[in-house]
């Protein structure tokens, strides 16, 4: 099942093209990593899909429904989960309270016990979000994104600030979600993370067409040399 379909998407800021004629299909159970230097449009791509930024041209279809405007229906939002790079939650509430709040938004939310099994958040539940470290906050944001049992997950730099153990736990969680048929769009600066998790990599480049690389047939060294070669050119 095609979960996300993008055709000929273009977006410019002040006459500077960021995304140009970009197309992508993502199926259920597929993990697509979006890689590229800063400023090549990774976050813009996610914002266009989520309806936060209007593209200049192109078509976006989510779960076989065309999205002609920035409006995204509540029923669509029931089916996706989002970790935004700049996203956060009110620091005055505890993690338990945040989870309770976000659970109230969904028709069939994941229980707190189930979340505790998916991610190491048990020790964080009674702490206010504001006192958590950056990595702990990312863990909570990831947990919040899973509350609605998403079929499509957007992870914009999800592991920034996480220690190695937590990052590996998150990777296991992503692999488990993938095996359950969840489609995942991941932007990351960690090439090994993309290599570990993704079925394919979309390489965004300045003033050059985006390229989708089937990385399962590539070694990590080949992927890195492709990326470094692109950065060098």
């Amino acid at each position: 099942m095609t979960v996300l379909s993008i055709k000929n998407l273009s977006k410019s800021y002040a006459n500077t093209p960021v995304l140009s004629d970009f197309s992508l299909n993502v199926n259920g159970g597929e993990v697509v990593a979006v890689l590229g230097e800063n400023g090549v449009g990774k976050t813009t791509l996610i914002r266009c899909i989520l309806g936060l930024t209007a593209p200049d041209a192109g078509q976006i279809s989510l779960f076989d429904e065309q999205q002609p405007s920035k409006y995204r229906s509540p029923s669509l939002k029931q089916r996706w989960g989002v970790v935004m790079q700049e996203g956060a939650v009110n620091g005055q509430l505890t993690v338990h309270e945040q989870i309770t709040l976000y659970r109230s938004y969904y028709s069939s939310p994941v229980g707190i016990e189930e979340l505790k099994q998916l991610l190491p958040i048990a020790s964080l539940l009674d702490k206010r979000f504001a006192v958590l470290s950056g990595g702990e906050q990312q863990r909570v944001m990831f947990a919040l994104a899973l509350i609605g049992r998403p079929q499509l997950l957007f992870l914009d730099e999800p592991s920034v600030g996480m220690d190695l153990n937590t990052r590996q736990q998150m990777w296991r969680c992503i692999e488990s979600l993938k095996s359950q048929g969840v489609a995942i769009i991941l932007t990351t600066h960690y090439i090994e993370e993309a290599y570990q998790l993704a079925d394919s990599v979309v390489l965004l480049r300045k003033q050059a067409p985006a390229e989708k690389l089937p990385i399962k047939s590539m070694s990590l060294e080949q992927l890195m040399s492709t990326l470094i070669g692109e950065n060098a050119s």
Binding site: V82, A88, S107, G148
Partner: peptide, 15 residues
């Protein structure tokens, strides 16, 4: 909530 992105995250949920 606007400035820190808290509201954006809520509006991306079915809230």
């Amino acid at each position: 909530e606007r400035t820190h992105g808290w509201l954006t995250l809520k509006l991306l949920s079915p809230m």
